[in-house]
Amino acid sequence: MIRTEHLTKSYGPTRVLDDVSISLLEGKLTAIVGANGAGKSTLLSIISRLLDADAGTAHVDELDLATAKSEEVARRLAVLRQDTHMTSRLSVRELVSFGRFPHSGGRLTAEDDRIIAQSLDFFELGDLGDRHLDQLSGGQRQRAFVALALAQDTPYVLLDEPLNNLDMRHSVRMMRHLRGLVEQLNKSVVIVIHDLNFAAAHADHIVALKDGRIIEEGRPVDVMTAPILEKIYELPIDIHVIDGIPYAIYFR
């Protein structure tokens, strides 16, 4: 389980995370939502070891992220940040191979080869393995990066805005893939996402942040209500339930 206790972080006088304590459920797809500046990225940065908290702790199972050995955490938790700008000239397979680094250093075993091939296949990249990253479309690149996280073979996967720059078709495919990670491979997946309706349609659990605090969490049907969403986004939002899934309508 990924668990934070009383996480607090300030930049100068602005408190971006204020006493955040959450437990992210195992074997579920959890979506973290909130307006810009709500603290989502800061929370993710602390959990991904890129930022130190001012106070509070974050744990992955029994490992304290502030003190545990980085390579040990890397076998437990895979993180893909939003900024995937990469200038390296690598083939898709080479990129995904680096997911095995926490397990076998630079020397790939037959077992590593098998996992790399599986990860490529899972994201339908089998035929693109020898392509270079700069020869891929946006959707293919994004899948290649998530395939790297899958090759890391960790029980927990954290993705920061995995739908960034994807069109509708690729967004739906990505979300189905992430659902597959949970259902077929029994992983715990946490995503930060802006599109509430994708969260409602695919996530098991939604965590809503505002001004550095968690103000709601629960099943999509519990969180996706007009009063709660209005509080989060300070915008009148209608909810329409279609096939049991609440969709937010807020375009006018």
Binding site: S70, E71, S88, F98, G99, P102, G106, L148, A149
Partner: peptide
């Protein structure tokens, strides 16, 4: 060599991979 390549992929990737 492998670590230099990972660092060349960026700090986000390097830290995620435990480097």
């Amino acid at each position: 060599a492998a670590r230099f390549t990972v660092v060349g992929m960026g700090e986000n990737f390097a830290v995620n991979l435990g480097i």
